[in-house]
Design a protein around this nucleic acid. Structure first.
Lengths: 215, 215
DNA sequence: ATTATCTATAGATCTATAGATAATGC
DNA sequence: ATTATCTATAGATCTATAGATAATGC
């Protein structure tokens, strides 16, 4: 039931929502971006909220895929966490929408966004499990793993606050020259050093066992 | 020129803006909260944007006060940074508004929010200076101090994303029992351990040299 | 007299629908 | 015949103003 026009509408809406917020975006704005009349949007979506719902459902997909992938790819919890942080930060930098507004909207209306919170909880417990394993194997120092998981996720999302897609990035005080990967590695190194019993063991390189160093 | 009613309006608007976004808040919402008719608000503020401007100006005040204070209170960059992170995170938890939306709005309209960006740059360079001093004195490992300063500020702000004021906090997946101070100390310890040459030297306690352990 | 509030409303804007029209595929 | 788009517009909502009215302090 998902055609190419659906996807275009969702993409345009996501960009607009990120830039001007959901309530700051009109159906006319979205229609203009896709090159349709306003009423044509209602052929694909029942209303504006339905567009938002489709976006929200997709938000957790990337991080969930990443955590599953790194847990399968690496044996060492430190390498798992390092790769997760870098790749999650990169994914968030490239997100077309503002994840904090999504949080807020999903929090306003937990029933409609039920699926969002289910996914979110799974993401959190998956990250927590990595940390628990690291603590159990004495690789990480003892920490509150639930709090630590929240912190990891929140810090990844924080990167998005000052690294924005090009259109918005031309903003005072934002360093334009940094790549998402450089930022992600910086954050991952800081976190791992903060967590490891022996910070010298901070993993350096691989994000993916097959294709190292990859974007 | 600032009376008590002004302040009430700003406070009500800030709470509403945080919960529903600026565009999701009407003058009628604000008026109801302060117990006035809608048109009375226009006696105090030219328009809705003027209310927002007053809020935005105040956003950087708390962090700037904190960074200035900790730099005056401690000699050791590690202690300065530790105290800053904890106190900044606490301050942000208690912020009535969503700092990320403020960022977005200030980025949309850099001319009107000129003052915001000036303050923001000063905050960033102040934090950066603390890190530079730590690196110079070999207490911290060598890092990109500009990137590190951005990371510290962003991570403090990230705490706000999942720790929200009570009304909004009743949200799935959010641990209600954590105090802002506990969260701040967790984040500060993680950051300092990640940054120190010798993580064993992570400062533990004092947020303020006069009144230790303070909120 | 001045300060603060109210009622009433104009004007703008936005969502969503009804119903006509054009394009597409059989 | 079906799928996709358009025009036109009703109805809701929101900002901001005009101008009346009430409260306050001299």
């Amino acid at each position: 039931m998902e055609g190419p026009v659906d996807a275009e509408i969702v993409a345009a809406a996501a960009r607009r929502f990120a830039k001007h917020g959901v309530n700051g975006t009109t159906m006319a704005d979205i229609a203009e971006d896709v090159g349709l009349g306003v009423s044509s949007l209602y052929y694909y979506f029942r209303n504006k909220h339905a567009v938002l719902e489709r976006i929200v459902v997709e938000v957790n997909e990337a991080p969930l895929r990443i955590i599953t992938d790194v847990r399968a790819s690496f044996a060492d919890p430190a390498e798992q966490l390092y790769a997760f942080i870098v790749r999650d930060a990169i994914a968030l930098c490239e997100f077309p929408f503002d994840i904090n507004e999504i949080h807020r909207l999903a929090g306003e209306d937990p029933d409609t966004f039920d699926r969002y919170w289910t996914d979110r909880r799974r993401l959190q417990t998956d990250v927590q499990r990595v940390i628990d394993e690291g603590v159990a194997s004495q690789v990480f120092r003892p920490v509150d793993s639930a709090l630590m998981a929240l912190t990891v996720l929140a810090n990844d999302e924080a990167v998005q606050n000052w690294y924005r897609p090009p259109a918005v990035r031309a903003r005072p005080g934002v360093n334009q020259s940094l790549s998402p990967e450089a930022i992600g590695r910086h954050l991952a190194e800081l976190t791992l050093r903060g967590l490891l019993r022996n910070p010298e063991n901070t993993p350096g390189g691989r994000l993916d066992p097959a294709a190292p160093g990859g974007t």
